[in-house]
């Protein structure tokens, strides 16, 4: 009885570790988009220049009409955008969660700065 209990516990533990590894290691692609965008009949203009950092990764420079690709793992992330507004440097930081089943997300930098709720969306490629 004791032996069976130990074996079942070990198996459950192994399954839990596997799940933790799966969720923490699941890779996703983030597309960082700095283009003019219209969401829910509202237009947002692309920034001339911004610096974007995902989690504690490298700072990336993004110009107008640019789209950058960033690979991340796990579901919880933080994005930091540094941009110029009326000649002054502004910083905006947001944390977000992504769904484990979705491989690619698109982040609109103009929508993020405008604090629109749909600044991050699942990317659906055109067929």
């Amino acid at each position: 009885m004791k032996r069976t209990l130990i074996r079942v516990s070990a198996l459950v533990l192994l399954l839990l570790i596997s799940m933790a590894l799966y969720y923490s290691g699941k890779g996703h692609t983030l597309l960082l988009d700095n283009k003019n965008i219209e969401i829910d009949d509202t237009s947002y203009k692309a920034l001339d220049f911004a610096e974007v950092t995902i989690d504690s990764g490298e700072e990336q420079e993004i110009l107008k009409r640019d789209r950058l690709k960033q690979d991340v793992s796990g579901q919880k992330h933080r994005i930091t955008v540094v941009y110029l507004e009326s000649g002054e440097e502004q910083t905006i930081q947001k944390t977000f969660k992504i769904d484990v089943g979705e491989p690619i997300y698109i982040i609109s930098i103009p929508a993020l700065i405008a604090d629109h709720e749909k600044w991050i969306q699942v990317f659906e490629p055109l067929n």
């Binding site: 570790i17 596997s18 933790a20 590894l21 799966y22 923490s24 290691g25 699941k26 890779g27 996703h28 690979d71 793992s73 491989p103």
Partner: peptide
């Protein structure tokens, strides 16, 4: 296939 990256990938 599942796109598990880094150390968690090796562990899994």
């Amino acid at each position: 296939n599942w796109n598990i990256v880094g150390l968690p990938g090796i562990g899994l």
